[in-house]
Design a binder for these strands. Structure first.
Length: 279
DNA sequence: CGGCATGTTGCGCA
DNA sequence: TTGCGCAACATGCC
């Protein structure tokens, strides 16, 4: 499920379901998801409380309670929130349950996560995972000047820089892949080879377009996933723009699809003029 | 059975 | 101190 657009859709669901709702029962038995808090702390923090607001930054959700407490949720790789009738049986891969009452209606919200890479913890102060996040491209926009400087500083491949949550919160493998294809920039290009303002601008626009596109897509169908991507998951298929067969490489441990035909690879300036005099 | 998966983290090493 | 490459995490699905 997870990446900025999915988490944003989840935030909208949870806002409708939970804001103003009072918790009548809650529980989890998964110490892994609630780490470093205890599973018992989850129920203790929630029961009797009212949800006041829900915010998203990157792939994290922060849900505020009426007593100043906070519930943090990260969907990991396979997490999602679903709403069911009160008293409904445990759903497949359910890891936590929150029963609530809202405007005289009672229902249950369940956290479901097959692989359990997600997080779900009730705490009384912000966690480092949240405070360390960089700006959110959707909520905060991308400050081109700052972004450009960040790119120029590193020699890591630009795609790895984009997926660094301290640089831009919420960009994952899909968004980085799609955004760079839209920007026509080779994901292997080192950041310090992308010094032109036009490069930062193209990447920022590519990411924004990828986010907007996926959001619109999520709104429509629930399951038309892969089909909506330009290049993600389409290695060896023709590039939708220039028809060249799409290539695949591994960057930062993640499969990366791109087009050798229309995504420009930038090389770093390896030598200054004084290092390599002409002769 | 083998390979891959939308994410994060910790470890060994340069 | 920083950065890099990777294995590991836990499980489903093709």
């Amino acid at each position: 499920m997870p990446e900025l657009p999915d988490v944003e859709m989840t935030r909208r669901d949870l806002k409708r379901w939970l804001v103003g709702a009072i918790v009548t029962a809650a529980g989890t038995d998964d110490a892994r998801l609630s780490r470093p808090a205890s599973p018992r702390a989850f129920a203790r923090a929630l029961v009797g409380r009212t949800f006041e607001r829900i915010e998203r930054r990157g792939k994290w959700l922060r849900i505020g309670l009426d007593d100043g407490g906070t519930l943090f949720s990260h969907l990991g790789m396979t997490g999602e929130w679903v709403r069911v009738a009160i008293g409904a049986p445990v759903v497949r891969f359910e890891r936590a349950r929150i029963d609530v009452a809202l405007r005289r209606r009672a229902f249950s919200v369940r956290y479901v996560d097959a692989r359990r890479f997600g997080r779900l913890l009730a705490v009384r102060k912000d966690i480092a995972d949240w405070t360390a996040l960089g700006p959110d491209p959707l909520a905060d926009g991308i400050d081109l000047d700052r972004f450009s400087k960040t790119l120029a500083r590193g020699r890591r491949a630009v795609k790895e820089i984009l997926m660094d949550q301290r640089v831009l919160a919420g960009v994952g493998n899909i968004l980085a892949t799609e955004g760079l294809w839209i920007a026509r920039i080779d994901p292997r290009s080192p950041g310090n080879a992308l010094l032109l303002p036009a490069d930062a601008r193209a990447i920022a626009r590519g990411l924004q377009r990828a986010i907007t596109r996926e959001l619109a897509d999520r709104k429509r169908s629930t399951d038309a996933r892969i089909d909506s991507f330009f290049v993600y998951g389409r290695a060896r298929q023709p590039c939708p723009r220039c028809d060249a067969p799409l290539s695949s490489v591994v960057l930062g441990g993640r499969t990366t699809v791109f087009c050798r035909g229309c995504q420009v690879r930038r090389r770093p300036e390896r030598f200054s003029l004084s290092d390599r005099p002409e002769r």
